[in-house]
Amino acid sequence: MRYAFWPGCVSKGACPELYTSMVRVAPELGIELEELYDGNCTGAGVISEHSMETADALNARNFALAQRLGLPLINICSTCQGVQSLAQQRLRKNPQLAARVNEALADEGLQYDAEKGLEVKNFLWVLVEDLGLEKLRSMVKKPLTGLKAGPFYGCYILRPESVLGFDEHPDRDHYLEYVIEAVGATVVNYEGQDKCCGFPIMTINKKNSLSMAASHLSEAQSEGADCLVTPCPLCHLNLDAQQPDAVRYATVNGLEVPILHLPQLIGLALGIDAAELRLNRHVVSTRKVLARL
């Protein structure tokens, strides 16, 4: 299975442990990654606030790069997924926009065929739809029995459903749970698992942002979760790096919930060493998780 790979900005900046664990884990699953070294930021929904069409064009550039390689595009960030899916839909529905975008890309010798489209999938979807849960289960060397993991999806991989292919794949909002079970761990469901971590408003309204994170973390901990697993590094930042500040809004005492990146969960189940997966590079220590295994 080969994919063009846009790692996103954050996995090479504030969440380097995500990038490292992904490139370590992918080959073990038979996934070949062709990184788009000249790829660009998707805009993360922020550039859309400035100019939706600029965001469309930026995303079209990444799509064109992937199409040039003739490969589907994989990402390791819920936000990249959501932004890219929306951009694809907009470009497909509006041929005039697509034409204007291609005019700009032509200067670089690039073209995005909006009609043909491009398969853009988050690692989570690749695991369930392309690799398959059966295959994943068979590859598990170290079942994570005893580990109670709560899913945290990240808004942009769940909503709006009309943009994210839910018609064809109606249970994409349960994939994390399937994967957690496939690697032998126990799923801990809680209401906040499909809500917002608060990352986008961290610099605008810190209190609200931390309250949102604290609410979901507290709930998960009350339900008995040892950790959360997320396919989004922005969620990871708000839930992990900001957790010490979120504690003051927590509704449980002694809030301590380590947050795993999805590739790290998979890596542990494949028997890869925790240090290689950079599990020692989290703000909230993952020792609780490792102790369970």
């Binding site: 660009n40 100019s51 600029t54 204007r100």
Partner: peptide
């Protein structure tokens, strides 16, 4: 910056007005 940054700048110039 990425290698193709001048192309990014061009995209911005074209679209970010309206």
């Amino acid at each position: 910056p990425i290698g193709g940054v001048k192309h990014i700048k061009r995209i911005f110039r074209r679209f970010a007005g309206k």
